[in-house]
Write a protein that binds this DNA or RNA. Structure first.
Lengths: 348, 348
DNA sequence: GAACCGACTGGAACCGGTTCCAACGCGTTC
DNA sequence: GAACGCGTTGGAACCGGTTCCAGTCGGTTC
């Protein structure tokens, strides 16, 4: 391995000059600079990151901790973090917590000694643990907020409002909410927007809380039956995976979407456009959030002690596709009544 | 920041002894060891990774370079790499190339200075560039092979064989292949297995090569029409995304699946179970491949110079769901004939 | 022509660990 | 009682860079 010392010797200058030449520092003659650069090139010199990190104290690396790399929601955030980090010349150390809050804490601790800053996405750890973690001062949150930490979150309440207004405009006056896990920070926001915020703009709409479901396909299957039993003409779902489950179950039971029941999801993951009918859903700028979180880390470094960290809130917007449509005519008292279950269709 | 020197001073021992005590090295008395460990704990000592990397030459980090974090195929591999790395006490530096072969080369080079070994998944770079890259000796490949490099790939040919045998058993005697990009290494394998390998076991089956498509939903939409025009009663697809596109287009044109046409995908991504009907597909052990690639990196370190690197090939298996069924009765000459296109349905 | 100023240069200290090597203490053995 | 050997210990070199500081040199200014 060729070191800076080798380059300096070969170029006929001192170690100090060689270092300055290669790091574009002042106080080097143009001739020497070029000479050093050329020799470094010729010798195939590659600076040692470890040595540089040791003296400068900066690693050129940012950490990313998220619950599940295979979940398209988090994958999109990761892509954003990754892209922005590369643009700014840094690498990303990524850790997947498997949705485990305890493991999450460990990983954050471990990563923090190896990185300049850390993006923590949708943390599962309880608030006290989270507050201790962000006290480090080098952590930016995505999709959650904590006192004293910079964060990027989404205007969920407005997304819910848009979805309800859309459904209201289509004549739906009984809308059900298929919620996510009780411990979910996002679900708390969506649910309260649904029950409270929705009422203001969409007064005439009756809102039905179906309860909490696992944020996966099977949860949606379960929610669909409850929605039908409750007589809802539209279902708003915690996320797209749940919405896809609702869609599948409605199809299996012979309920037409959107003719009999409308379904609206949340997040706008790729799969939302792949199903039949394509899913109406609230799009969330996930990659942008990842990118901005990286930028917040940089700001954080330069922030004065007393200054409050920045909290950003990104807008959401409804994407209307084909899973939502006009409410069925009120003549047929309740849509659930005229259903013809098809027991032969198997739900995977 | 508290350094090892601080710990040594506080514990009343030398720097050397403190280092040995904390790294479980021999030549330290039990009393001293415990004393050092205790003071380190009390002072909240955290070893500096940079310093350790500088002296030992090992970073405790492995790199992962892949074309697209948001693609569920690669996300699954990433999850496996990530999990195995954690089990063996290492971190993962991940880089997303956005499917760009040139960027890929740069990123591999950059990462190689910062990691102990690197997993390169489905590389897009041309063979000569790839051979130069693997010449480093610290690179393990996933889903591609190169002379001199350890690799983990999949028994694609057997997967194709299984799919064809399945379709043959269902009475299909005209099967079409909706292939992937011409530059794709996997597609080359699948295509040749389809045209050559298939024939051996499934002699009576006519195989129709539909050509190459972009490995996305839209590519499948395009392929579906060609398959119908060709009179195929079954379509085998390059990957699940293409298969989902085929499914959507067939639905839009009023073709029933599997009654009129059977569809088989490849990879078994999560979305395969979410659509209607659930997709029959060839499952590929992606996470396992990621895990094994990490293990191959370790083996590589200890391998003798002359010894050939290990190439592993993981088995694939067909998952039969509802998108494949018996071939339609031959009475209706060709399935394409009795189709009733439904121009109102919009393809997203 | 001497004092001065600025740009450039290189020796050396330093970052925080690991590890070689010499020294040391103590119990055994001849 | 002296030589020996083993386990333990600490001083110091080292990993590969960055940066402080003192010194050198050329050109200005009075």
């Amino acid at each position: 391995m060729v070191t800076l010392r080798d380059v300096a010797r070969a170029a006929g200058v001192s170690l100090a000059t060689a270092s300055r030449a290669l790091s574009d520092a002042p106080h080097v003659s143009a001739a020497n600079r070029e000479q050093v650069v050329r020799t470094a090139e010729a010798l195939g010199y590659r600076p040692s990151h470890a040595a540089r990190a040791l003296t400068t104290g900066s690693t050129g690396t940012i950490g990313l901790v998220l619950p599940d790399l295979e979940n398209p929601f988090f994958a999109a955030v990761a892509k954003g973090v990754q892209g922005r980090a590369r643009e700014t010349g840094r690498e990303v150390l990524v850790a997947d917590t498997d949705e485990d809050g305890d493991l999450e804490r460990d990983l954050v601790d471990r990563l923090l000694d190896r990185v300049d800053g850390l993006v923590l996405c949708s943390p599962r750890m309880p608030p006290p643990a989270l507050e201790r973690v962000v006290a480090d001062g080098r952590v930016a949150l995505v999709n959650r907020e904590a006192p004293g930490a910079p964060s990027v979150s989404f205007d969920t309440a407005d997304g819910v409002r848009q979805a309800l207004a859309h459904l209201r405009a289509l004549g739906h006056d009984a809308v059900a909410y298929a919620g996510g896990p009780a411990a979910s920070w996002s679900d708390a926001l969506r649910r309260s927007a649904f029950t409270a915020g929705g009422a203001a703009e969409v007064e005439a709409t009756e809102v039905l809380d179906l309860g909490a479901f696992r944020p996966v396909h099977a949860g949606g299957v379960q929610a669909a039956d409850l929605a039908l039993a409750a007589g809802a003409s539209a279902v708003l779902c915690f996320n797209d995976l749940v919405a896809l489950g609702v869609l599948a179950r409605l199809h299996a039971r012979g309920v037409r979407v959107p003719d009999d029941v409308s379904v609206v999801g949340f997040d706008d993951v790729a799969a939302a456009t792949l199903v039949t009918p394509p899913l109406t859903t609230v799009a969330v700028p996930l990659a942008r959030a990842g990118r901005q979180a990286v930028d917040l880390l940089d700001v954080t470094g330069g922030r004065a002690a007393g200054q409050a960290p920045e909290r950003r809130c990104l807008p959401t917007h409804l994407v209307v596709r084909s899973s939502s449509g006009p409410a069925p005519a009120p003549a047929a008292s309740s849509p659930a009544v005229r259903l013809s279950p098809d027991p032969e269709v198997v739900i995977p």
